[in-house]
Design a protein around this nucleic acid. Structure first.
Length: 607
RNA sequence: GCCGAGAUAGCUCAGCUGGUAGAGCAGCUGAUUCGUAAUCAGCAGGUCGUCGGUUCGAAUCCGAUUCUCGGCUCCA
């Protein structure tokens, strides 16, 4: 027994989060906003306070659910009037009043049927629905300042404990996340234990906005998604295309080293192919309508695999040929609902850095290990050092026999164990044809992005009846591994833009060097510098406009060009250049050759 | 697809309750010839996303439609 510290928002007793009221029980531990569980309690209470404010300001609103989330909280409302941004301000104001009043959160336990009756009288249909699904006979309600809500708790001792919160946005959300249900209005907010932490989070959100690849894509002239050309279809502008080409060149070179063979396959195929592959049955909702050509139906491809299988089947294969590794930068088209589209991260046409490995069952673990190592190497080259790795196991709907699933899942698991990287099991999240490993890369802001995927497939070898001849002279079925390291070039590019905030490392920068003249008489020297750099393989351009050097520096800085070379009287005289690095660091004077070598070295090191 | 918000010059945005469109930057021309994040002046630039309606008159009001944004759902 003892006193509960004043800054405790909840206490942990026997692994259970409880209210920070009364005395501290034996073995109890105080939780503050520095503990994830404590912060969750705190935010959950703020969500209740928001509901209270909405109840006061918007009579007739019905209440759904209001949980805390990873970085804040939300509450779903069914309100006759749509909320506006101005309403958020009003709600915030009312919340501040409720907080100032320091209303105690009072817990009341009542009979479940009584609770149902009570909420029914108030017309709270969502609460009634929730109550009907609770198995216990009794339920708990929390009341503060006259506003009562169904809640498991726990909550803060009183509303006055809230120190910093902000309402962020309004959005539609289906009741219970099911699109067959009514669309409710969700208000998102966040809350922290102190004003400084809140400010830090709001600054983080600003930084996220600043790095938005759609914003940077426009500012840096990297890509666009045209209104006239179609939504979800990406136009790669020269600078974006340059970056893509560098990525592709790197990708091809590394695949050659890793014993892959590169393929090119068409963008469409006869519908029958997609029927045989099973896509027409299992994947149709992501496919476009077939088109008729001379009486035959054709389908634009949502995946590359059937083509790679067709190439596999073009010969009789021996066990000596395996593993066969086919890779292709294959452009696929998938139907996405208009509301799901999002810049480069969610599009309708994209290029996968795809590969299919055909191997014998006893080779699978080794192949998975190789792919895993290869993936991490590629991601690391692009500056991604942290990942979340998931092993997705057999889903409810699956094909193939259990033994195969067992072997394949084991192979994936052992490859992961061998690599020593930490991973989580995602039960039932595999694809219908096999288990998979998904790798989410974490960018500089710590956000996780799904890019790489490694999938084992028993279905397609079966469906296309592919085989190889074993040392025993008999026919055997190979196992197929699908894998994409970057996932799609479009999404990966979007992630890269945000990761680097548009300031790409030298080897990726579309313009690596800008040569700037101090005055017009230096143009000839500047042009010859550019010529020499280009001859040395450096992507350089020139600014000979009639502007002051400060202006040119500013423009180049906004273009996020890694190196700025200044050319004035001094440089012309001595045949040198003056080098400034992106960010302002002045490296000083050097010869064009020396500078060219320096850049080449950086590019070779993928820096 | 669904709920909400939005679409005005190349870009960022202003334009109150209907009276016929404006700024900054970018562009062009001229002056200036300058040493590390904006030199000055002038000019040009829009059938206000598209289609239809109301009105003497629509960027403004109404309807439809396309696209974008915030989410939900879904995914590389």
């Amino acid at each position: 027994m003892g006193n509960i510290p004043k800054d405790a928002v909840a206490i942990l007793v026997n692994g259970q989060v409880c209210e920070a009221s009364g005395d501290m029980p034996e073995g109890g531990r105080a939780l503050t906003c520095n503990d994830p569980e404590g912060l969750a309690v705190y935010r959950h209470s703020v969500s209740h306070i928001m509901a209270h404010a909405v109840a006061d300001l918007f009579p007739g609103t019905r209440f759904a659910i209001g949980p805390s989330t990873a970085d804040g909280f939300y509450y779903d409302f069914d309100s006759p009037q749509p909320f506006t941004p101005e309403d958020l301000k009003k709600i915030e104001k009312r919340m501040s009043q409720i907080i100032k009043a320091a209303n105690p959160f009072k817990r009341a336990v009542m009979n479940r049927d009584d609770a149902i009756r009570m909420f029914e009288e108030k017309g709270e249909i969502y609460k009634v629905e929730l109550l009907r699904e609770i198995a216990d006979d009794t339920v708990s309600l929390y009341e503060e300042g006259g506003f009562a809500d169904l809640c498991r708790g726990p909550h803060l001792p009183h509303t006055g404990r809230v120190k910093a919160f902000a309402l962020l946005s309004i959005a539609g959300a289906y009741w219970r996340g099911d699109e067959k249900n009514k669309m409710l209005q969700r208000i998102y907010g966040t809350a922290f234990g102190d004003a400084e932490s809140l400010k830090k989070h709001l600054d983080f959100l600003e930084e996220v906005k600043r790095r938005d690849h759609r914003r940077l894509g426009k500012d840096l002239d990297l890509f666009s998604i045209g209104d006239e050309t179609g939504s979800g279809l990406v136009l790669w502008h020269p600078k974006g295309a340059t970056i893509r080409r560098v990525i592709e060149d790197f990708w091809r070179a590394e695949h050659e080293k890793a014993d892959y063979q590169n393929l090119y396959t068409p963008h469409m195929a006869r519908l029958d192919l997609w029927k045989q592959s099973g896509h027409w049955d299992f994947y149709r909702e992501n496919m476009y309508a077939p088109m008729e050509v001379e009486g035959q139906l054709f389908e634009i491809k949502p995946m590359n695999c059937p083509f790679h299988i067709a190439i596999y089947k073009s010969h009789l294969r021996s066990y000596r040929d395996l593993p066969i590794r086919y890779c292709e930068l294959g452009t696929v088209y998938r139907f996405e609902r208009s509301g799901a589209l999002h810049g480069l991260l969610r599009v309708r046409g994209f290029t996968q850095d795809d590969a299919h490995i055909f191997c014998a069952p006893d080779q699978i673990q080794d192949e998975i290990s190789r792919v895993l190592e290869f993936t991490l190497f590629v991601l690391k080259t692009f500056g991604f050092e942290n990942y979340d790795v998931y092993l997705s196991t057999r889903p409810e709907k699956y094909v193939g026999d259990l033994e195969h699933w067992e072997t394949a899942t084991d192979a994936l698991r052992q490859a992961l164990e061998k690599s020593g990287i930490r991973y989580e099991v995602d039960p039932g999240e595999g694809v219908f044809y096999g288990p998979k490993i998904d790798i989410k890369v974490k960018d500089t802001l710590g956000r996780a992005w799904q890019c790489s995927t490694i999938q084992v497939d028993f279905n397609l070898p079966e469906r296309f009846d592919i085989s190889f001849q074993g040392s025993d002279g008999a026919k055997h079925r190979p196992i197929m591994v699908h894998r994409a390291l970057m996932g799609s070039l479009e999404r990966f590019f979007g992630v890269l833009i945000e990761h680097y905030a548009g300031a790409f490392p030298v080897w990726l920068s579309p313009v690596q060097v800008r040569v700037m003249t101090v005055a017009e008489r230096h143009a000839d020297h500047a042009n010859s510098v550019v010529k020499a750099l280009r001859a040395a393989g450096v992507r350089a351009d020139v600014d000979v406009t009639n502007e002051k050097i400060g202006y040119k520096v500013r423009i180049a800085a906004m273009d996020k060009i890694p190196y700025l070379l200044t050319v004035g009287d001094r440089e012309v005289e001595q045949g040198i250049v003056n080098v400034r690095r992106r960010g302002g660091e002045n490296i000083g004077e050097m010869t064009v050759d020396a500078f060219g070598e320096m850049v080449a070295e950086e590019v070779a090191g993928k820096r």
